[in-house]
């Protein structure tokens, strides 16, 4: 520790000029020391830092290129997907169109067949009706013949004019025969 006596003694024996004028040994030592520092900085530190900066720049550039590439790939993938989706859509539309077409042709077929069938049924019905009518007409004709014979008998029984009777019967028979033919 310092005492004030020591301090006083020290300040008396060494002049202040000594403090402000550097000692030769220190100048030399300082020069050597600073030269070493300069060499370290110049030869080691700055190149290393430059290297670090270059590395960083390269890394950043590389990363950005990677990102760019990835982006392009994604873009391409997206375009592909879109094309596929568009293809699928048009295909679906085509399928629907085809199905509709098919349905329409089927419908037309069915309608035509139904119409044919209906026509056939109607024809058959008409033929049946015709046949029935014919049989009814012939039946009725027989009945009318019987009836007219009966009527004629009654009429004959009532009147006595022979010749007139004869002519009437003749005519009737002729007429009947004409109808029967």
């Amino acid at each position: 520790m310092l005492s004030s006596q020591q301090l006083l003694a020290a300040s008396e024996e060494a002049s202040g000029t000594d403090l402000i004028l550097p000692a030769t040994s220190e100048l030399i030592g300082g020069l050597i020391a600073f030269t070493i520092v300069g060499l370290i900085v110049w030869r080691f530190a700055l190149p290393q830092i430059q290297k670090a900066l270059d590395d960083r720049q390269a890394a950043i550039v590389g990363k950005m290129q990677d990102a760019e590439q990835t982006k392009q790939e994604a873009e391409k993938l997206r375009a592909d997907y879109q094309a596929q989706i568009a293809g699928a859509k048009s295909e679906a539309a085509k399928i629907v169109e085809e199905a509709r077409h098919q349905a329409e042709t089927m419908k037309a077929d069915i309608v035509a067949r139904a119409q044919d069938e209906a026509a056939a049924i109607a024809d058959k019905a008409k033929a049946d009706i015709d046949a029935q009518r014919a049989s009814v007409i012939s039946g009725m004709r027989n009945e009318v013949a019987g009836l007219s014979v009966d009527m004629a008998q009654k009429v004959v029984a009532g009147t006595v004019d022979r010749s007139a009777q004869q002519a009437l019967v003749e005519q009737y028979l002729n007429e009947l025969g004409g109808v029967n033919n």
Partner: peptide
Amino acid sequence: FFLAVLVVWAILYFGLRKPKA
């Protein structure tokens, strides 16, 4: 003085020994 040199060297050396990106 030389201790200072050593410190400067140490700081720079350990800071920049393996410069990383």
